[in-house]
Design a binder for these strands. Sequence first.
DNA 1: CTGAAAGCGCTTACAG
DNA 2: CTGAAAGCGCTTACAG
Lengths: 344, 344
Amino acid sequence: MAVTEPPERPTQRDIARRAGVSTATVSYVLSGRRGGAKPPPEETRQRVMRAVAEVGYQVDHAGRSLRRRRSDLIALMYPAPSSPWSDRLAEQMQEAAAERGLGVVALPMSGSAAGGALLRVLRERYVDGAVLLPDCPVDPDEIAVLARQGLSLVVFDDDLDPDGFDVVRQGRGRACRDAVEHLVAAGHRRIAYLGHPGEDRWRTARSVKLRSYRQVLQEHGIGVAPDLVLPVADSRPDAYAAVRGLLRRAEPPTAVVSATDRAAIDAVWAARDHGTAVPGGLAVTGIGNIPEGLVIKPSLTTVGAREFDFSAQVARLFERLDAAAALPGEVMAARWELIVRESA
Amino acid sequence: MAVTEPPERPTQRDIARRAGVSTATVSYVLSGRRGGAKPPPEETRQRVMRAVAEVGYQVDHAGRSLRRRRSDLIALMYPAPSSPWSDRLAEQMQEAAAERGLGVVALPMSGSAAGGALLRVLRERYVDGAVLLPDCPVDPDEIAVLARQGLSLVVFDDDLDPDGFDVVRQGRGRACRDAVEHLVAAGHRRIAYLGHPGEDRWRTARSVKLRSYRQVLQEHGIGVAPDLVLPVADSRPDAYAAVRGLLRRAEPPTAVVSATDRAAIDAVWAARDHGTAVPGGLAVTGIGNIPEGLVIKPSLTTVGAREFDFSAQVARLFERLDAAAALPGEVMAARWELIVRESA
DNA sequence: CTGAAAGCGCTTACAG
DNA sequence: CTGAAAGCGCTTACAG
């Protein structure tokens, strides 16, 4: 194997030497001077920029952020797989961040193992702030600690109280229960639930969908049949197959609640391909309100936010980042509602 | 507004003082000693760990990474919106990274503006390495420069030659042309194309799908009708509406090629809802091979990789990260193929 | 076995 | 107007 040169990354010292100035001057040219002091004169600037171009200098993040005590980076933590909503939020964060010269990194929480590794990004101050979407298994106490240490945080959560960070209330439990109530009110008694794998083992906040389903059935004296709860909501192929299977049973369910719109849409296909009318033969309700639900026939009844817009939440994160002193925690709303369309 | 305490982040100096040891000892306890030297004795360790717990110390990434000259973080750059493939790759990277105590950040490239901000993450060494998926508008010369400076890079690209980084060949052009050839061979002449918005203005590498479509039609002497090229592939609702519109025309197309499987699936539904048989009345081909294409009826003919697995590419990135000296660039394969199913 | 000290690359108050 | 110097928080060769 060829012996390769050790990779060389030039530093400001190299630039300074090359341009015959001090490293202070290099920094002034590259990053400007604090407090609007006069920048170095044009001639000096040119010499420095020439040296920068010649050696291909790039500022080093580690050095800069250690000195400045901020990273100019923010994060979006969301549960994998991504969704149109997480994509949209990432995009809106990026737009706002780009205006200020900040970068955005996405932290998809896949599996349970990833939690620790991703939390490190927040704990070790890799970023200055973050938006946490629901169902990220982060310890509430830890969130408060992070906020107290100066991390700017906007957290989507229905239970947590703000405490040096902001909380966005969605009212997901109420909305999910409304969906099941809607089915019960229409006379359904055999209602299947397409859930996340392992959802019944999750701790309370994350299993809000399954709990809503069970709670409403119980309140109406309807038994929760274990064989009507299927862990297929995270896989469209699995959801499709599962619903085909349900419809082949001797006593098929008359309605399906799905923890994801994606799986609900496949439930609609499965019914149609099986020759079962929707909602006549099988009523279907999703959770999440993705744009795709508007497209299918019949359009999908679901639960979610009506506005495909996070600008208020993003703006709040930047307020927090810009604030000189720590801001008190605030409660914001981005309510989920039952959105009745054609499929149920 | 209440005056708030300035956020306090304890440092190793605070721990050292509290535990009555030096900062060196604190570091030895927290991070171990290089070269397997003996760690501090249990009694010291306990004192340090107690102090750590008492003040809630967390290592500071900026300090550590400046000293160690690495960030223990890798990135995945991909074009937004996310897809099952980018989700899968992120997940596989996370699994492999977690084993080594590394973190993974995702960099979704949304819009054209985001390019600069995200590239900064690579240029300024926020991360030690990255996987770049196709259609990220990154300058090839810049990639070589980054690699030369020691960044570990695995790049999905059909044109670029490896040069201190590895290249994964997918052969997307060949595969896309095969799909159009497949339609032409079946006798289709009016073939619509659902493309990415702005695709006709993109520079060569990114517009491979549209170019493949045009090229094959031209080779067969079929005129490319501008009104059959629709920029709707990134929006499922738009794609659905566009195909409904196509089918209402006096002379509707008999086939559709879509730049995304997602839009292709909506094309199938649009046809079904319009009462047009697929593939009899409208043949539909997607690009991308997402799992959902297997679920719909008729199943989706598409183009893409057969294996839903990036372990070879991920393994290569880690080889590169682990290598003492810079590794020469290598060419890997993850070929795209025409996958003929029922819809065309 | 443990500590004092140097230094990673940068920024910035300060002196000249 | 510009440079010498301190220091951000950490790690690590080195001396004791």
